[in-house]
Design a protein around this nucleic acid. Structure first.
Lengths: 112, 112
DNA sequence: CCAGAAACGCAACCTGTGGTTGCGTCTGAC
DNA sequence: GTCAGACGCAACCACAGGTTGCGTTTCTGG
């Protein structure tokens, strides 16, 4: 049973730089490629590409504002991503728990 | 404040194929590169590489058994990974919640 | 005992993606 | 009207996921 995960959404959040970008956008309440790149160890162009990826999966939304383009986090979509993280976590957690239970049962059997 | 996440561990579980491999290993209680590749849409060699990655971050542990090499999930390490997933999720969740609260406060101010 | 199959490891190669630099274009400000 | 700031596009480099090909080890049946 392979946990219905949206691989695109997951891999969008899988990249460390993109995670930090989301973090910054949330902390500052939005930003542009330039302002983000100033707070990151990568160039503006790299940030722009990442914004493209995040935009394609709907995690951010950019609107032109004069000569700059302002990006903001789509909170609903990020909430969905968070839900998927915890879903996968919960699945593995459950399996680990079950294995542990079985292991204990076997141990009990052998001792008796 | 950038959530202390182990990027290596995260990116190890970030790959969809590796996630499915962990899933299969947990479901079957271990396996070899060959048995895994039979249940996946990739070749044995690809699986072998992934097992290398998972092994380097300590998520799996392989022991030679005759002409084959049996791999098993390191449950403690997977538990750590799960904890990181939920940690990141919780951080974003908290930020989203705070933003929502502030937004509501502003709306209240404007209405009064 | 030995021949062949099964599992492995190693190396070369292809492709996509994250990253860079360089350059042209549009917009705002003095 | 010019000039700086922000952007987009394109070429290029490095690395990771994937493949094929090949040689090596180990089990197994006759």
């Amino acid at each position: 049973m392979s946990v219905g995960v949206d691989d695109d959404l997951w891999s969008a959040v899988g990249d460390p730089t993109r995670r930090r970008m989301l973090d910054l956008l949330l902390a500052d309440g939005g930003g542009t490629a330039t302002t983000l790149s100033e707070q990151l160890p990568v160039t503006r162009q790299a940030v722009a590409k990442h914004l493209g990826v995040l935009g394609r999966v709907g995690l951010v939304h950019g609107t032109p504002a004069g000569r700059e383009r302002r990006y903001e986090v789509d909170e609903a979509q990020l909430a969905r991503a968070v839900a998927q993280l915890s879903a996968v976590g919960a699945t593995w957690d459950a399996r680990l728990r079950r294995i542990k239970r079985i292991a204990e049962a076997i141990q009990r059997d052998q001792q008796s």
